[in-house]
Amino acid sequence: MEILLQQIINGLVQGSVYALVALGYTMVYGILGLINFAHGEVVMVGAMVALAVIKVLLATALSPVLVLLLSLLAAVGVCMALGYGIERVAYRPLRHAPRLAPLITAIGVSIVLQTLAMIIWGREYHAFPQLLPNASHSIGGAVINEVQIAIVLVAVLMMAGLLLLVHRTRLGRAMRAVAENPSAAALMGVNINGVISTTFMLGSALAAVAGLMVSANYGIVHYYMGFMLGLKAFTAAVLGGIGNLRGAMLGGVMLGLIESLGAGYSGALTGGMFGSNYQDVFAFIVLIAVLIFRPSGLLGERVAERA
């Protein structure tokens, strides 16, 4: 029973991170029909920038919470600029190219960012300092620490904020209009390029927050960390129905739970043959299953409609 509860808590925490990253995939897909495979690397850059800022600020007398907030701000700023730059430099020139071209470019951008990060920050694992108090709380025998509580709360707040933005503001209405019919949106006076840039920046801001979350949760930062996280979040977006915001949120949380429960029980169920180190397998079993049985995802209606 404690194991079940513990795995659910772990799954919710990890799922919150997946959801934030999945939103970036789904927003860009919704508006451009493009799978931005470089998005995972934006998460990594967010983590790296946050760590760099923290290292500098820890030498000063600032309070740890303030250091954390400042590093978050820096990571968000850098990632927004990066997201804007990626779209402007790599994707915009290919806006009217065949679909394969931007897809391959996305993979290229991803490799470029990974390599740059490796050159700047090296190949080694960096320890991410403990800034929040590490106090743990026990719920029915399961343990959740304050970092994890913060992760879930911040993720929920950011997702609620994003939904409000998209459904209640003029910018959000413009984003939905461009996603549905770009030329009609232009006829309404919407600056399509502006909306696309904004979409990339919003997704990248969420990625930066997610980057800080995983680093704080696992205490480790690495130039390659964005790759697997990006693939998992992409899986979450597909699971929820790519292009659908609520789908990305649902898919993220579900994938987190599936992974965590799968890892928690796979050892017992297979007589020790597949232990929890097979955790990553579950995400991709989910991806394959969704693509075969329900390619439009849980909440998506019409993936194939936009060519």
Partner: peptide, 19 residues
């Protein structure tokens, strides 16, 4: 026509006044 199918009639009209 190019209406925004997933927006309400009134939201469509508000889009017309976007600028």
């Amino acid at each position: 026509r190019g209406v925004f199918a997933r927006m309400s009639v009134e939201e469509n009209l508000h889009m017309g006044a976007y600028c």
